[in-house]
Nucleic acid binder design. Structure first.
Lengths: 219, 219
DNA sequence: ATTATTGTGTGAAGAGATTCACAGTGTGAA
DNA sequence: TTCACACTGTGAATCTCTTCACACAATAAT
């Protein structure tokens, strides 16, 4: 029953890349490809073949020296490894510009990991259905999360509200939070938080864009 | 003239954290705080004091053993290090749900690194002003980027269009791209790309949310 | 003036991630 | 059947990032 847990702990980087591999492999499969070598996949993502083979050790699927990896089987194996055995519902809090864009983005994309309910404190939004998803008041968060067994939260409220909403999510039983609010959240150690900090990312691009440009000038 | 380049190469992680430090320090400053110790800042971001001191070595600002860091001076030093000496304009391509949300998000946030022009191929959007920013057709991209000297691009078009638009941005002279399209871009080595892959992030949260929850159960 | 305290800056150690390099393997050609 | 080939899986080496631990400095207390 508890045999599905990984023997070794797999790094965050590897989990992220596996998600990416799967998406690319899905596209290839849709185009009718059947097999792929590690170096081909590496070329697609701009990485090394060794990295890919190392990552795939985690999922425990073996390729063949002569045909590489069977794409269909590999996709299934990655899914087996990455996905929960059950469906995981997602709660999104903060139905502003960004929240609605995220709802649109994920709408219909991954049926087993879909946004099941949205929450906001604007009475004008409550009970509306946005991108196929019902919007509730914050006061209903705990009840809905528990009724629907939602496990993952997406946080796109303004910074000032973020910590408070994060705590509500945790109390409601959420185990992982995707945080778009540009402040660090304080949550218990058994809750996983992934930050998407667009300001930080944009500043990185501005900084390294300059650096790289310089580099070329020197070469 | 070329003395502004860093002696040593600074890691991506460090640059990201510096951006975060600055934002938090700005908030503290607004609240009237004047000094801060590395361990206080560390507590705010959930990191270690050593890490912060190490990161600050890059900017070359020294604190005092007795009063820690002067917040105002530190903010200025980080700015000095991170920001371009000139203003950097940003071009956003893809004025869909996500593009508009990003325009709203950055609107008025960092005047020296602001979205200066938006591009789309939908005639209905062209020449509209959205969140204070004019929208042009894709065919004008190269001209506008050059006229306004834009250096950074934000890419929020659908996957199928992303590679093509990325190439247009590069040809127009863009040096760094913040890529929201969920596919890896192929660009020359002197262009820096930062990916924001929301699907990958959500899958990571789903995976590690489960892991962390398990961990607690075992403890 | 001396001492005790507390925090900085940084060399060195440690941990973690990536890449190297090679033994092992399945296949097709001779 | 044997050989040559091209690739996988993985131990070991390397590289990168983080943390440790301590010399040094500024102050307050005595």
């Amino acid at each position: 029953m508890s045999s599905q847990k990984p023997k070794v702990v797999i790094s965050e980087r590897t989990i992220g890349r596996l998600s990416l591999y799967r998406r690319l492999l899905n596209d290839l499969q849709a185009q009718g490809e059947r097999n792929i070598y590690s170096h081909e996949l590496a070329a697609m993502i701009g990485g090394t073949a060794a990295q890919i083979r190392r990552d795939l050790m985690a999922v425990g699927y073996s390729g063949s020296p002569t045909h590489g990896y069977d794409i269909r089987e590999l996709v299934l194996s990655i899914g087996n490894f990455l996905d929960a055995p059950h469906m995981q519902g997602v709660a999104l809090v903060g139905v502003g510009n960004l929240g609605r864009a995220i709802m649109a983005f994920f709408s219909g994309r991954r049926p087993r990991l879909a946004i099941a309910a949205a929450f906001d404190n604007d009475p004008y939004k409550i009970n509306r259905v946005i991108h196929g998803c019902r919007c509730y008041g914050i006061e209903d968060l705990s009840r809905i999360v528990q009724e629907q067994g939602l496990e993952v939260g997406i946080l796109c409220v303004p910074s000032q509200a973020a910590q408070d909403v994060a705590e509500r999510l945790v109390r409601a039983g959420i185990r992982g939070i995707l945080n778009f609010a540009p402040i660090p959240l304080r949550v218990p150690a058994n809750v996983y938080v992934e930050d998407i900090d667009m300001t930080m990312s944009l500043e990185k691009v501005a900084y390294f864009g300059r650096q790289h440009a310089n580099k070329e000038g020197l070469k």
